[in-house]
């Protein structure tokens, strides 16, 4: 898999390269600002891109804007946005078009297997949302979520992060069938129709969390 990275901090970009190479991924370009990132995407047509939120010159949310621009230029381009802090608003902005998008804390990178897993999910058109974003979204709407059992809430959180039923089952050490049943309960308690697609489920969760019933 070919990766383009937009990261201005050399320590971090070299660390990312090291880490991705150790997992057999190919880093074809490392851009240090938004403009060179867009140029690198044009030149290399990568399978997935990794973008830092804060990029020169102002170190605000250039990364988010660069990611959105790249996806306008190349519809469906998978982008995994990395940040040293998570803002729910940025997540909402990115998820406006949810195919192949990810938003993770940089901390997650050092959990190599999970990170590569998330990267793969994004590359194949899925979603990867940081657990902290999910947790914050969940605390924002406590009443109906309170109606869920603890297990159902765990499953909802994992769903919101973008995991499929099999992964959720193995994480919680339960059967696929049990997960399926729990999800059915969650959707019926939240009044949502169940679907199979990972990112649609995230959307359903987000849509529910963001709008008042």
């Amino acid at each position: 898999m070919r990766v383009v990275i937009a990261e201005d901090n050399v320590l971090l970009s070299s660390g990312l390269e090291l880490l991705l190479r150790s997992k057999g991924l190919e880093v074809v370009a490392v851009a240090t600002d938004a403009r060179s990132f867009l140029a690198a995407v044009d030149a290399h047509h990568p399978d997935v891109t990794i973008v830092d939120v804060r990029l020169p010159p102002s170190f605000r949310d250039e990364g988010i804007r660069a990611a959105l621009q790249a996806r306008r230029d190349h519809p469906g381009l998978p982008v995994l946005v990395l940040s040293q802090y998570v803002e729910v608003v940025y997540a909402a902005t990115l998820l406006a078009a949810p195919n192949g998008i990810g938003y993770l804390l940089k901390d997650r990178v050092s959990r190599v297997d999970e990170f590569v897993d998330a990267l793969n999910r994004v590359a194949s058109g899925g979603t990867a949302l940081d657990p902290e974003v999910v947790a914050r979204l969940l605390t924002h709407r406590s009443d109906p979520v309170a109606a869920l059992t603890r297990r159902e809430r765990e499953i909802l959180a994992l769903m919101a992060e973008g995991h499929d039923n099999t992964t959720i089952a193995s994480r919680l050490v339960i059967t696929d069938n049990a997960v399926h049943k729990h999800i059915g309960n969650i959707f019926s308690k939240l009044g949502l129709a169940p679907t199979d697609s990972g990112h649609r489920r995230v959307l359903a969760v987000l849509a529910y969390l963001n709008t008042q019933s």
Binding site: L19, Q84, S110, R111
Partner: peptide
Amino acid sequence: DGTQARLVAIAMRLAV
């Protein structure tokens, strides 16, 4: 830009 980035870089190398 300093401390946090360094910590992330250390964590990545430790992970590798």
